[in-house]
Nucleic acid binder design. Sequence first.
DNA 1: GCAATACTGAAGTGATCACTTAACTATTTT
DNA 2: AAAATAGTTAAGTGATCACTTCAGTATTGC
Lengths: 111, 111
Amino acid sequence: MLHDPAQLDLMFQALADPARRQMVERLSRGPASVSQLAEPLAMSLSAVVQHLAVLETSGLVSTEKLGRVRTCRIEPNALRAAEHWINERRLAWERRLDRLGDFLTDINDQT
Amino acid sequence: MLHDPAQLDLMFQALADPARRQMVERLSRGPASVSQLAEPLAMSLSAVVQHLAVLETSGLVSTEKLGRVRTCRIEPNALRAAEHWINERRLAWERRLDRLGDFLTDINDQT
DNA sequence: GCAATACTGAAGTGATCACTTAACTATTTT
DNA sequence: AAAATAGTTAAGTGATCACTTCAGTATTGC
């Protein structure tokens, strides 16, 4: 479930917007209410709620409502999934370059 | 330049599409021509070229044309930038939880 | 109970997206 | 030189995006 392409779509899509990344950045320093998330952003509360919905369906953020306040927090497992996908691609490429390097020194040693 | 928000936008945006991620996956196993990238994808060559343009302006992929063949390769530094952003957020959150844990055991020990 | 607070939801808008087709250019191959 | 290959470019289309405003609904403080 960590490698579901549709899930990755949602996560990367969610992270592609600067406002949403700013919200994630804020939440990485601790939980916050919707208004607290909205405060530094130059847009309506409504827009923030919509961004929050994107973050929530992506699994990156979870929320809980108590009284009239919705508290939002980061979901580190989801972040790990995105991180993992990128890491795998980068490693595959770097391993490939290593093997290529080995191969080149090998045929050099054969002289 | 690794933390330029606009650059991160472009990278995450680029990774948000399954076709483009598939192209990056293919390229992580080694360089490929445009047609080779297109082969497993159920869309026109034209569409693939457009996806490739997105990947290239995001900095994730670089290309070079020799004769009539354009060869594409992954740009691991760009991948690292995306990885790094995610990693920082996740770590910030986890460190926060650790401190919170310490605090809770501390006030527990004070009984 | 009335006002302020903290959201929530629906509808609308202009911009961007992910394609398509079609016409074209440049390079090889035969 | 003609045909095949490999890619490029432009224009168009329907879908999705990132907002907006406006009208609502619970809570909470006075």
